[in-house]
Simulated scan of single mutants.
Amino acid sequence: MTRAIDLTADPDDFTAANADPGQRASQGGALRVQDLDLNLLKTFHAVFDERHVGRAALRLGVTQPSVSHALGRLRLMFRDALFVRTGGGVEPTPRAQRLAASVERALDILQDVLDEGALFVPSSARRVFRLHMSDFAETAFLPTLLRELDHRAPGVVIETLHVEEGQFNDALESGRIDFALGHFPHASPHFHRSELLHERYMLLMPRRVADRLSLDAGFVLERNAPDALRFISITSHPQSMALLERHGLTSRIRAAVPDFMVVPAILQRCDYALILPRTVAQAFSAPGETASFEIADAATWSVNAYWHRRFDADPGHRWLRALLMELFRIGSREPFDSWLAVPPEASD
């Protein structure tokens, strides 16, 4: 049977003798989180806002006796009246005034957790996504991805990480990285993956070098590389070195560098050629200033997006995954016609 609670009663009258067993246990010492029912906090918040038990009941969609009963439980727990009756409703005690901000903050935090699990609003989202990218993937994908985020999700931050090969699977499983973009043959077969494009190597050099050596569009590296042609090797891509070895060109290497960062400076200031992934070569090409050539016997490989299946249902993860597929899953289309094209505003 539900007890009626007199809101005008002295809080000292709410002794352990009147409490139920669970409440009596809590009164032996400090209150514990497990002693609280979420509905009690919701009731407290509604009564504090409305300053009226009846209006609080309507707001919560429950009966007025239910609200009174919940207030009674709260008063026994906190050993304070919390609310006292006035001519127009109820007013909070000083203890209730102090509790109100914390209760509201706790309910807001819980609501944020529930909202995060149900929706992701790009335009207002504040979230950091961590992506493991090869140097190729950073060059090919990151500029376009950031440009799109500026328009669609200005509060979203991308952090790129370089994970050692031995830690790759653990990093993706643990969520230390949200996605990996690139070609990772050592990736666990349990990961989900989506192929973005097939890549292959090509030869890139300054136009002045091609003109000086009389190299035209029909130039074939594996047949007639001029003796004066010199190369820079990218050590992070051993396939590039393998192609030079296959065609007996390793003696022509002038320098070996670990990644692509120095490529633009080399093309601008030095008279060397480089074997690069086709998409990267296109990204570094400048009309009239560079010349590129196909390598007929260069192998192709797939560039993928990888993620762990346990993040499939995460709304933010789903959103970024869809964006990556929209921007970069180009199938048979030329990547340069898709995401490496000059944006319209840049040509104004």
Rank of each mutant, 00 (worst) to 15 (best):
E138K: 15
T139D: 07
T139A: 13
A140K: 07
F141M: 12
L142G: 08
P143G: 13
P143K: 09
L145D: 05
L145N: 06
R147I: 03
R147C: 02
R147K: 11
R147E: 12
R147M: 04
E148G: 07
E148T: 14
E148V: 10
E148M: 09
L149Y: 06
L149H: 01
L149G: 13
H151R: 15
R152I: 10
R152K: 14
A153S: 11
V156K: 01
V156H: 00
V157W: 06
V157A: 01
E159T: 11
T160P: 00
L161E: 13
L161T: 11
H162A: 13
H162L: 09
V163C: 01
E165R: 15
G166M: 07
Q167S: 13
Q167Y: 10
D170C: 05
D170V: 08
S174H: 10
G175T: 04
G175A: 06
R176N: 01
I177G: 04
D178V: 07
D178G: 03
D178R: 10
F179W: 09
A180E: 07
A180S: 15
L181C: 07
L181F: 09
L181P: 04
H183Y: 08
F184I: 05
F184T: 07
P185M: 08
S188R: 11
S188I: 07
P189G: 00
H190S: 13
R193A: 12
S194L: 12
S194R: 15
L196C: 04
L196I: 09
L196A: 12
L196K: 11
L197I: 09
L197W: 14
H198I: 09
H198Q: 15
H198Y: 07
E199M: 08
E199T: 08
R200G: 03
Y201H: 15
Y201E: 10
Y201L: 15
M202G: 08
M202H: 03
M205T: 10
M205N: 03
P206D: 03
P206L: 05
R207T: 03
R208A: 14
V209M: 10
A210N: 01
D211P: 01
D211L: 12
D211Y: 02
L213A: 06
L215H: 00
D216M: 10
A217D: 12
A217H: 11
A217K: 13
G218A: 11
G218M: 09
F219K: 00
F219N: 00
L221G: 01
E222K: 01
N224W: 00
N224H: 04
N224I: 00
A225W: 00
